[in-house]
Design a binder for these strands. Sequence first.
DNA 1: GAAATTTATTAGACTGATCTAAAAATGAGG
DNA 2: CCTCATTTTTAGATCAGTCTAATAAATTTC
Lengths: 253, 253
Amino acid sequence: MAAESQRKATVSSTVEDYLKVVLKIEDMKQRASTSRVARHLEVADATVTDMLRKLKKAGLLEYKPYYGATLTREGRRMAVRILRRHRLLEMFLHQVLGYGWEQVHQEAERLEHAVSDLFISRIDALLDFPSQDPHGEAIPDARGFRQVEDDLCLAEAEPGSYSVRKVTNSDPEFLAYLDRVGLRPATRLSLQEKAPFQGPLKLLPESGREPVYLGLEACRSIFVLPRKDRPPASASAPDGPASREAGTRGSRK
Amino acid sequence: MAAESQRKATVSSTVEDYLKVVLKIEDMKQRASTSRVARHLEVADATVTDMLRKLKKAGLLEYKPYYGATLTREGRRMAVRILRRHRLLEMFLHQVLGYGWEQVHQEAERLEHAVSDLFISRIDALLDFPSQDPHGEAIPDARGFRQVEDDLCLAEAEPGSYSVRKVTNSDPEFLAYLDRVGLRPATRLSLQEKAPFQGPLKLLPESGREPVYLGLEACRSIFVLPRKDRPPASASAPDGPASREAGTRGSRK
DNA sequence: GAAATTTATTAGACTGATCTAAAAATGAGG
DNA sequence: CCTCATTTTTAGATCAGTCTAATAAATTTC
Ligand SMILES: [Mn+2]
Ligand SMILES: [Mn+2]
Ligand SMILES: [Mn+2]
Ligand SMILES: [Mn+2]
C-alpha cells in the first residue's frame, strides 16, 4: 500500500459536511454512530452506512460496522478546515455584512463549501484574524490549531456569577430569543436558582433588569465562565481564584 | 395547461449555468444551438440535448430539436438574476476583498449559486449599488432591468480616440496582460492603425507611453466608446492632463 | 438467557448530471 | 436530386447521493 498521500484530495460538499459532523460528535465526546451522524445530517441511516464505508475507503475515517466512525488524521484535517471556514464566514457575515447572529449559520453552511482559500484568507485579514465566531466558538487557525475550550455548561452550573462564553445552537428562533432577553457571548449574568426536577434556571443577565427563566434543555447549549464572584457576599461559592484560562483573547464586537 | 406559475421554482446550480449560457449566446445575437451551448459549458453535446429537453419541460426555455433553445420569460428572469449575482459578486470581490480583475470571475462562478438573496442585497448596498462590474459590464438591477450597452467592438473600430468600455473575456492570463499594458475599463486610448489581413491593432493607451500591438482576435473582446476626438493638436500625443480613472480602486499585490 | 427493542446493514431503486458510441437529420455542393 | 460532412439526437452506461423495506446484529429487559 502506502499509495495514498497525494495531498489536495478534493472532496464534495457532501463529504465535507459528513466529516464536520463526525468531528462535532467526537468533540462532544460521543461515539460517531451511524444513527447519530444520520440525525445530525438529517439523512436516512442507510445513507450514512454507505457513506461511512466510502469515507473509510478514502482514508478519511476509520469505520467499524455496528460501532461507528473515527476521523483519521487526514479526515480531521479536512473537518477542521471546514470548521474554520464556517466560523470565519459567520464572523464575516456578522461583522461586515451586518447579519444577525441567528442568520449567519445557515448562510455559512453553504458558503463554507463554495469559497476559495483566497477568499478565506482575505476575510481573515479583513476581520483582523478573529479567534471567535459570533456564537463565541473558537475559530481554528490557518494551520488547523484549535484553542482549548474550558467552559462550563450552564445546565450544570451552580448558582453564582458567570459570563456567557458561547452558545452552541444554531436554531434561529432560539438565538433570536436569547438576544431578546439579553443573553449573548460576553454577557455577564448571575445564575440565581435552579428549580428542581429538571426545572428552569433563573438567570439575571447584567444587561436586562428582568430575570429570565430558561428551561434546563435550553441551558445545555449555553456555556459560561465563572467570574470572580460578585461582591463579598455570603457563603457557598465553590470557586478557585481563577487560575487557567490562558489564550482565547476576546475581541468581538 | 396553464399549470406552471408556482413562483420560487428552485433550480440546481447546473441549471443556472445552462440558463446563463443561453442568455449570453442570445445576447451575442447567435442561435443557442446544442453544440454552442456545449462548447460554452464544456460538456458533451449529448448532455446538452438532454438538458435542453428538461429545461423545456420545466418551462424555462423553448427547444426545437435540431435547432436550439430560446429562453422563456421565466428562464430569462432566472438567467438575469444569476448574471446580476455574478457581476455584483465580482465587484464585491474586487472592491472589498481586493481581488484582481483577473481573479474575480472564477470565484463568482461558484458563489453566484451559493449566496442568499440577503447576501446579495447586503453587498449591493455596501458597494453603493454599482452599475458595472470590474470588467465594465453592466450589472442588472434588482428588478432584472438591464442597461442598454451601446459600445463598439474594438476589432471593428476605425482609427481614432476611444475609451475602454468593457472587456468580455474571463481568461486570467489575458486580463493580467491587458492590465500590464494599461488597458482596463475607463482607460482612454487611441487606435492608431489596423494592420491589414487580420493583422494586429496599434493602440496607445493614455496611461502607458508605449504603443501596444494587439491581435485582432484579442480585440474582439474589448469594447470601446468613441470620444470627442482628441484636442485639435497635431499628429501625435493624444493625451489629457490625467483626469480619468474613477471607480475600480486597485489594491492587489 | 431468551424475548423484545433498538440500532445497523443489505438489497434494490431512483434522480440528476454526465459520458461514449452509434444512428439519424440537416444542409452544401455538385 | 444525390452525396457527404457536420450537427444533433438516441441508446446505453456510470457515478454520487439519496431513499424505503427487509433483514440482521446488538443491547436491554424481564
Ligand atoms: Mn454555525
Ligand atoms: Mn455545509
Ligand atoms: Mn465574469
Ligand atoms: Mn456558475
